[in-house]
Amino acid sequence: MNASANNLPSRLDPFLRAEIEDLYARYSACVDSGHYEAWPGFFTEACTYKVIPRENHERGLPLATLAFESRAMLEDRVYGITQTLFHQPYYQRHSVSGILITEVTSSGIAVEANYLVIRTRSKALSEVFNTGRYIDRVVREDGSLRFAEKCCVFDSEMIPNSIIYPI
């Protein structure tokens, strides 16, 4: 990617960069800790959140494994995770790469990062669960950085049975 062709300031404010990195670190800590009720708070009210197989993403097929279009839908998902979806409980552990800032415009900061999620069920071996790339748009809202878009494009298209918790 030709960074200079995009709206990247020649030197991104290091404090802004650190703030974005902190957003990703806090996001991972949230979804790995089981505090799902805090998860929607990382998003804007009119956000989009998608977990989409790479094949659909690259072929322009619109189906996603999960596709939500508002913070309210994320809150409904939290209710599903905690109250309605029957599943074997598991730990998940996100490992997220350094961030790649691809564009800074008035509509937000385009950020990408690789991620790896390990699943560990009780008394079972840890296993690679889901791996892919976040393609996100981060905006400042009420003084805090939030995700206006988070798209989890996963390589691991053969899902090990089910995905319950947020990626």
């Binding site: 977990v51 189906l63 996603a64 494994t65 999960l66 596709a67 939500f68 599903g80 309605t84 979806l85 029957f86 599943h87 074997q88 899902i159 049975n161 089910s162 995905i163 319950i164």
Partner: peptide
């Protein structure tokens, strides 16, 4: 489609059971 498939509100249960 959010109800169905490997993460769906309904179908994820089926794979688990």
């Amino acid at each position: 489609a959010n109800l169905f498939g490997p993460a769906g509100y309904v179908s994820a249960d089926d794979g688990e059971v």
